[in-house]
Design a protein around this nucleic acid. Structure first.
Length: 301
DNA sequence: GCGGGCCCCAGTTACCTCAA
DNA sequence: TTGAGGTAACTGGGGCCCGC
């Protein structure tokens, strides 16, 4: 989901499915506040239990997913926002969102002072949003800045200013690389190209990428390409031969091998499966519409 | 922290054949 | 035409190490 330029802050109410939603990452930053129920939140290999009052800080690099308890489904307020709006006010306020493997704590447990204060601000933000009075966007932005400040104080207890500055420097370098990769993964792209964007040697780029992302450069590019292929297989009727070309592959063999390795099925099987799921989900929605007139779970303006 | 050399090997490319 | 799979040659990423 991309944030519109004129609406850099979104808040919405959302209940994760009882089975784990698909792992994903995105270009915006995210805050989650559990208002009721229970479940789990997954960040890469880590998992956290979810309960009312818990706050989750989600950066724009780590792949994550959520799941609800079948007996007592969790319900969240989620805030999505463009990191640039924080940066424009004070780049230091970005620090709580910077991903540093081994240091980053995604969950602030209910009852912790930061969770209480941030939870209260997110509830106020929701009220602002639903009331929709004149100037609500500005008020929401102010609340977001306040939340960032509280997060900075919360995390600042554990990390020195010098370490924060270093992490910020690395973050900007990594963002440049990821922006470059995301805009070029459909073409032949090498580690040397990415190193050039970061102004470091290919050797250093390799160490840096693995250290910050937890996976190798090629692995990351392949994941992007296969993700794009999956999106095109499910969302278009383009022939597979066109799709593999659109995703940066020049011949069929490597595409089929990589696709099967990542998904466990061939591209054709994947397309069949997704079309069946889409048909089933459409039938469910039609039945739901017929029986009840309910609001969608995910509300976005 | 950063750059670079060396070696290994997985992945890629460019062919091919075969089946449906 | 599309999809699957095999082979050989080649490329370049990863791991390791060392020096600055």
């Amino acid at each position: 989901m991309a944030l519109a330029a004129d609406k850099p802050v979104y808040i919405f109410e959302w209940s994760p499915k009882t089975e784990t939603d698909r792992f994903h990452s995105h270009n915006h930053l995210e805050l989650g506040y559990c208002i009721s129920g229970s479940g789990s939140f997954y960040f890469g290999e880590k998992s956290y239990s979810v309960g009312p009052g818990d706050v989750f800080v989600v950066n724009n690099l780590e792949r994550h997913a959520a799941a609800s308890d079948p007996i007592n489904p969790s319900n969240f307020y989620f805030v999505f926002f463009d990191p640039r709006i924080i940066e424009a006010v004070d780049s230091e306020l970005l620090q709580p969102f910077i991903y540093r493997p081994g240091h980053f704590t995604y969950k602030i447990a209910a009852g912790e002072p930061a969770a209480v204060q941030i939870g209260s601000l997110i509830r106020e933000m929701w009220q602002e949003y639903t009331a929709g009075q004149e100037g609500h966007k500005g008020v929401m932005l102010g609340q977001l800045i306040q939340i960032s400040g509280l997060l900075m104080r919360h995390y600042g207890r554990h990390t020195s200013g010098k370490e924060w500055q270093h992490a910020l420097h690395d973050y900007y370098r990594l963002i440049r690389a990821l922006d470059f990769i995301k805009s070029r993964f459909r073409e032949p792209i090498t580690l040397s190209d990415v190193a050039g964007v970061m102004n470091i040697s290919p050797s250093r780029a390799r160490h840096f990428f693995k250290e910050k992302m937890g996976e190798g450069f090629k692995e990351y590019v392949t994941r992007l390409r296969i993700g794009e292929a999956k999106r095109m297989l499910a969302g278009t009727n383009l022939p597979i031969s066109d799709i593999l070309y659109e995703c940066g592959y020049e011949t069929t063999a490597p595409f089929y091998r990589a696709f099967k390795k990542h998904t466990g099925v061939s591209p054709a099987e994947y397309r069949k499966r997704e079309s069946r799921i889409a048909l089933f989900e459409k039938m469910e929605i039609d039945i739901e519409k017929t029986m009840h007139s309910t609001e969608p779970i995910m509300k976005l303006k």
